[in-house]
Amino acid sequence: MITYIKNVVSLKLDVHICTGCNMCINVCPHNVFLLKEKRAYITNIDACMECGACQLNCPENAISVLSGVGCAAGIIQGYLKGTDPTCGCETDNCC
């Protein structure tokens, strides 16, 4: 997989409240997590695309990430309209 810009990702994991349920590993499309001794660890943070799936599916709320679409057109649109970056899926090609 190609790596994107490094050291910018907002992903955080609180290992202490993790119960090792494996959900984050199941949902992450970029294999960012690894399970070691019944706890999840972030192994490959630069691969994270901030989709937010892990945060939403962690039953213990151990994960936080500022999720959103990594889409320049969406960011420009959001900036012009003063809203959050959105992906214009209905109207154009984004995603």
């Binding site: 990702v9 500022l66 990594g70 992906c87 090609n93 984004c94 995603c95």
Partner: peptide, 10 residues
């Protein structure tokens, strides 16, 4: 926007 690995922060 079409790629599958870019993060919002990036």
């Amino acid at each position: 926007g079409a790629s599958t690995y870019t993060s919002l922060s990036g």
